[in-house]
Simulated assay, not measured.
Amino acid sequence: MTDMASQIQKPREPLSIGRGITWLRKNLFSSWFNTALTLLSLYVIWLVVPPLIDFAIIDAVWTGASREACLGPDAGACWPFVWANIDQFLYGRYPSSEVWRVYVVFALGAIGLVPALIPAAPAKRFNLIFLLVAYPVIAVTLLAGGRPGLPAVDTSYWGGLLVTLVVAVTGIVISLPLGIVLALGRRSSMPAIRLVSIVFIEFWRGVPLVTVLFMASVMLPLFLPEGVSLDNLLRCLVGVALFASAYMAEVVRGGLQAIPRGQYEAARAGGLSYWQAMGLVVLPQALRHVIPGIVNTFIGLFKDTTLVLIVGIFDLLGQVRSQLSDPNWSVPQGAITGYLFAALVFWVFCFGMARYSAYMERRLNAGSRR
């Protein structure tokens, strides 16, 4: 029996190699154009990837207490520059004596977010209530302070990854429900609601985010009553959320148009109200269809947080640029190292959102596969 089993399993290796060759021929070398494109891509990878690995890893300087450690003739990335400024990259000029509040906010966010992302995790309702209601209050109270035992910290001292996450998370959390309302309003049978939704969406989609941030930071205070002042970061948060909600509304509207009218009519015939039909029947199907578009909007919003630098708010990328002016770490490769670190952080967050989106697509579409 053992000899028979070994004889049966012998052909498996050639079959796997044959399948690999078949896959390569079908996907990479199926025509002269695909063959040329494949060879060109391999050539570009050969030109870019090995030098990047040499600079970032092999020839990189990993330890050192000053800029002299990175001044060698063949020195690569100056990672001691990142280690020396990692505090500024994480939370900017936040007072060092109060930085524990930033870490508590990060930890509470992770504790609340991880169970929310696990479909099988229990107590989903309480977890969402914590994330959407309790956590924002706790985060604002801790970060801003102004309470007994918590000295006030002005938002002008916030920076780095802290600001990036604050702007991105606020925009994501507000833009999705507001975008759903706008998408429903644009499809409403009531002319006034439809007109207001269309004007709102087209206005915010017709101006660049840079203009929105500039208007919110510079022009808006000119229209406020004398003595009334709004925090600069708060103004930017409102502008980013409204801007993202307009794009989110069009994504959701595309999903709503993909649902047959009969779904809504069947729900209404079953005795459901308009909002029940939308919330229980139509919207779940529509949002499932546009998961890639929703996550793509989230990723774009996360990367667009770097634009807040133009109004004097130092996010992660802005903080990296600010630290490049430090004479103690003025080295030729300092800028490339700092931007490489910022790119890696952004890639980790964006790639994580993309992979979770793909996971949710597979999970939600499992029941519709044949």
Rank of each mutant, 00 (worst) to 15 (best):
Q9W: 03
G254I: 13
A335Q: 05
Q285E: 11
Y43A: 00
V281A: 12
M1K: 15
K303L: 13
E202C: 06
V163G: 10
Q9F: 06
G92T: 15
W204Y: 14
D315T: 02
R194T: 13
G255W: 04
W100S: 10
V210S: 08
Y274C: 11
R67W: 06
V173Q: 15
I58S: 13
I118P: 01
V153I: 10
V166I: 15
R355T: 14
A134C: 00
V348W: 00
A342W: 02
L143E: 02
A139Y: 10
L233S: 02
I299H: 08
W83N: 09
N232V: 08
A134L: 06
I45H: 05
Y94N: 06
C70W: 07
L309T: 08
L317I: 05
L150T: 06
R363N: 00
P95H: 06
S31D: 07
I8F: 15
R194V: 08
V196H: 15
L195T: 05
L128M: 01
I174C: 13
P80V: 04
P177Y: 14
L132I: 04
L344N: 06
I259D: 14
L165T: 12
G227W: 02
G92Q: 15
R147S: 05
L307P: 03
G239I: 03
Q88C: 01
M215Y: 03
A267W: 03
L165I: 14
P177L: 10
A286T: 10
A343P: 03
P221R: 01
G318R: 09
D231V: 06
A121M: 07
I193R: 15
F33R: 14
A123W: 11
L15V: 11
A277Q: 07
D154L: 03
W329M: 00
R253S: 07
F106K: 11
R187E: 05
Q276F: 00
I193P: 09
P50H: 10
L132C: 09
V114G: 08
I336G: 11
F126K: 05
A277S: 13
L309D: 09
F314R: 15
D59C: 03
M219Y: 14
E226N: 11
L220F: 03
I259F: 10
P208V: 10
F200N: 08
G270K: 04
L233N: 01
I180Y: 07
A139N: 11
A139L: 09
E250L: 08
L165M: 12
L150F: 08
